[in-house]
Amino acid sequence: MQRLARGERDALGPLMERHHRRLFRIALSYLRDVDEAMDAVQETFVKAYQAAARWDPVSEVAPWLSRIAVNHSIDIYRRRRRRQRSEAPMPEATTDHDDRWRAADPSPESEASGREVGQRIAAALQSLPERQRAIFVLRHYDERSLPEIADTLGMSLGTVKSSLHRAIARLRERLGSATA
């Protein structure tokens, strides 16, 4: 990061190698669209390079990158929602937005079952308000602690706790029949 802060572009390579998969999964969990998730990852590293000089050396790189990726994902989601709204009334999310992505090397049966679960989870996640969804994704797809999430999203710890509880309650309702 210090090399990146000095404007050394070749420092981007190792940073991207270390974090791009994790950031892709965060963005994909939030957006459920491969192209949009890759755009979010790309813009995360662009922003990381541009903002590296302002990076605080005492803070960890992974949560800092997660913050950028989540904020980009929220921006992309807002743009998508505006586009959908200007084209047609926004439908209730019922299916996965993008089924081109696959887990590494699944069997055909587990792939089919995984796709169905993925679609149900995607629909449930898309029913959450954007910040609740970000909190949920950071907790359950990036294993961030609640204080880290509060710091990442610039919220109080209390707001993060109550939002996570609400998100879980709503997901329980939405995923009810799948978990019975």
Binding site: R21, F24, L28, S29, M38, W101, R102, V117, Y141
Partner: peptide, 12 residues
């Protein structure tokens, strides 16, 4: 159920 979400192990 989230453990079975393919997004967890998705590859770029």
């Amino acid at each position: 159920l989230l453990d079975r979400d393919p997004a967890r192990a998705a590859e770029p």
